[in-house]
Simulated scan of single mutants.
Amino acid sequence: MTAYWISTYKEIIDEAKLAAYAKLAGPALVGAGGTFLARGLPEQIYEAGELTRTVLIQFASVEQARSAHDSAEYQQALAALDGGAVRDLRIVPGAA
């Protein structure tokens, strides 16, 4: 079952660290089978929505998304981020 990696950036603390993270994270996640579907600021928000950077990545399964997160390549990206942002990251299974 398809799974979605959803990451929202509550606060960006260090732009340089975020750039270093992005340089490593994109290739690591694509290499692990992810497909970027959306990334950036919302064009419209409703209800209790927040104007925060959001990233949506599709994986073939929850297990594949977990493996991508736990991979050595992605862990290097997280090390580069090193507190440069406060994020909410979740993996959500697709609807059946």
Rank of each mutant, 00 (worst) to 15 (best):
E47K: 13
L51Y: 07
Y9S: 06
D70M: 03
V86H: 04
P93K: 06
A38P: 13
T8S: 07
G94W: 03
G40C: 00
A85V: 06
A16S: 12
E63Y: 07
L29G: 01
Q64P: 13
F59C: 02
A72P: 10
Y21G: 12
T52G: 05
A38F: 13
L78G: 03
F59M: 09
A19H: 10
V55M: 00
A77T: 07
K10E: 13
L89R: 10
P93H: 04
Q58K: 07
A28N: 08
V62D: 03
G49N: 11
Q44K: 15
V62N: 01
T52Y: 04
A28Q: 10
V30N: 09
A72F: 07
Q64C: 12
A65T: 00
Y4W: 11
E47T: 14
A16P: 03
G49I: 03
E43A: 15
K17N: 03
G31M: 14
I13P: 03
S71N: 03
K17L: 01
D70T: 02
A28R: 05
S67K: 06
Q75I: 06
Q58W: 08
A25T: 06
Q44M: 14
G83F: 07
L89A: 01
Q75P: 11
E15A: 11
V62H: 09
G33N: 05
Q76K: 05
A3H: 10
V30R: 11
G33Q: 01
A48H: 15
G94Y: 09
R90N: 02
G83M: 00
A68N: 14
D88E: 06
S7N: 15
M1G: 07
A16R: 11
A25G: 02
H69G: 02
L89Y: 09
S61I: 08
S67H: 02
R53F: 12
A72E: 08
A68H: 14
I57G: 08
A60N: 08
W5L: 11
A95N: 04
L89T: 11
A28H: 01
A19Q: 00
